[in-house]
Every structure is written in structure tokens, then in C-alpha cells.
């Protein structure tokens, strides 16, 4: 994992991140892709309590992603 890369699960609320990679199976990846979360997509982390789902802002909508899922999304912090 490169310097600034981390799992979405360990990002701080308020930070803006770019999606880099997907771990896990192809079906999870496809599902996220179809929701508009692709490699290079910018996300804003709205809420991450350290447990439970992570709430993100994605072009105007607010999505809650289950904890296990966020442990499989590699992101890079840009802000």
C-alpha cells in the first residue's frame, strides 16, 4: 500500500478521499461500481464512528456503507 493509501474504514470524518482499489469479490466491486463508486471517484467521509457503517457523500447523495465493505475499499486521502 502506498504512503497515503488506507482503507475507507480507517478514514476520519470530514476528509475527502479518492477511491484507489477494491479488495473482496467481484460482485461487491460490481455493486459499488454500479452505484457510481469507481476507481478515481472522489468521496467525502461524512461520519465514521470507528464501528458501524461509514457514511459518505457521493455527488449529492449520502450513502451508508457497511463496516465490512469499507474494509475492502482502498482510498487515498487528498484533503
Amino acid at each position: 500500500m502506498a504512503e497515503k493509501e488506507m482503507m475507507l474504514a480507517s478514514t476520519m470524518a470530514g476528509s475527502t478521499v479518492v477511491v484507489k482499489k477494491f479488495g473482496g469479490g467481484i460482485s461487491l466491486k460490481t455493486r459499488l461500481n454500479e452505484m457510481g463508486i469507481n476507481c478515481g471517484t472522489e468521496l467525502k467521509v461524512m461520519r465514521n464512528d470507528g464501528w458501524g457503517p461509514v457514511l459518505i457523500a457521493l455527488s449529492g447523495s449520502r450513502l451508508a456503507l457497511g463496516r465490512t465493505m469499507t474494509g475492502k475499499i482502498v482510498v487515498e486521502k487528498i484533503n
Binding site: L28, R31, L32, M35, P53, L55, S61, R62, L63, A64, L65, G66, T68, M69
Partner: peptide, 17 residues
């Protein structure tokens, strides 16, 4: 019931607020 009648992981949360 989850273990024996309806096995498999609960579907991961992907919910729009």
C-alpha cells in the same frame, strides 16, 4: 435460523440516506 435454515452472510449494508 441464520445458521441452519437461511445460511449465508447478511447482505452488506449499502443504503442511501
Amino acid at each position: 435460523f441464520r445458521r441452519y435454515l437461511f445460511p449465508g452472510e447478511a447482505s452488506p449494508l449499502l443504503l442511501e440516506l
